[in-house]
Design a protein around this nucleic acid. Sequence first.
DNA 1: TTGACATATTCCCGTATAGGCATATATTCC
DNA 2: GGAATATATGCCTATACGGGAATATGTCAA
Lengths: 124, 124
Amino acid sequence: MPRSATTTDAFSAIAEPRRREILSTLAESNTEHDVTWLVEQLGWPQPQVSKHLGVLRQVGLVRVTRDGRRRLYSINGKELRPVYDWVKSYERFWEHKLQRIKERAEQLERESQRNHAQAKPPKQ
Amino acid sequence: MPRSATTTDAFSAIAEPRRREILSTLAESNTEHDVTWLVEQLGWPQPQVSKHLGVLRQVGLVRVTRDGRRRLYSINGKELRPVYDWVKSYERFWEHKLQRIKERAEQLERESQRNHAQAKPPKQ
DNA sequence: TTGACATATTCCCGTATAGGCATATATTCC
DNA sequence: GGAATATATGCCTATACGGGAATATGTCAA
C-alpha cells in the first residue's frame, strides 16, 4: 500500500513544504490573489503552482472565486483547525519540559537556601 | 521528483495516520512503553510498528531507552513545537470567521434596535 | 551453549507522488 | 472569427512510500 494521498486531509497536504509556502504567501498579503500573482511571487513554473493549488483546493485549505479568466485564491483557515487541535493536545509534552526545569530550579533554590542557612551547622 | 521523505521533519512524519495513532497511544498512557506493549495496544504486525517507530525516532518525535532486550519508547513533544507554531500563525484565519459572524450579528442587532425604535416612523 | 524472546531490518510489490514539458480549456479583446 | 491571455490538465520519469513476509540482530535464561 502506498502513502496516503496528499489530498486525504490537511495533514497530508501541508506535509509538502511548497504548499506551506503557498499558504504563507497568501497569508502575508491577507487578500485573495490570482494564479499569475502567485507565480510571480513564488517564481515557480505556472503548472507547478496550479497543481499545488489543486491539492490545497481539494482539501479545502484554499477557496477559489472566478473572475473572468482569472481565479482568485484565498486561504480557508477552517481546515487547519483539526491540525491545530491535534497538535495542541500534545502541548503538555513540550510544556512539561519547562515545567520540570522550573521545578528543578525551585528545588535547587530550596536546597541552596537550606545550605546557606546551615552553612556552618551549629555544633551541638 | 518524489514526495519529500517521511523522515524529513515532523510535518512529513505526522502525515501518516498510523504514526499519529502511535503518538496518541503513547500519550494516553503518559509513560514509556516497549514495542510489545504497543503491538498489543494497536493490534498491528510487529514489523509495522517498529518501522513507524523508526520514522518517529528519526524525526525526534519519540525517544528510546534500552532496557535489556526491550526498547522503551516515549513521546518527545519538543519536536511538535514547529508544527504548533506554524499552524498557530494561521489562527486568525479561522477566528476571523467567528469575528465576522460576531460583527454581522452585532450589526443586525443594531439594525433591529433601530427598526424597533422606528417601528412606526412618525409621519412628518 | 542453546533456545526463547524482543526488536529491527531486508526484500518485494503496487502505488501515488513532484517536477518538467507540452497541451487542452476557458475567457477576453480586437 | 481569431489572437492573446489565464489557468488547468495530461503524460512522462524517478523515487520513496507502506504493508507483507521472512529473517537478521540482540539479549536473557536455563
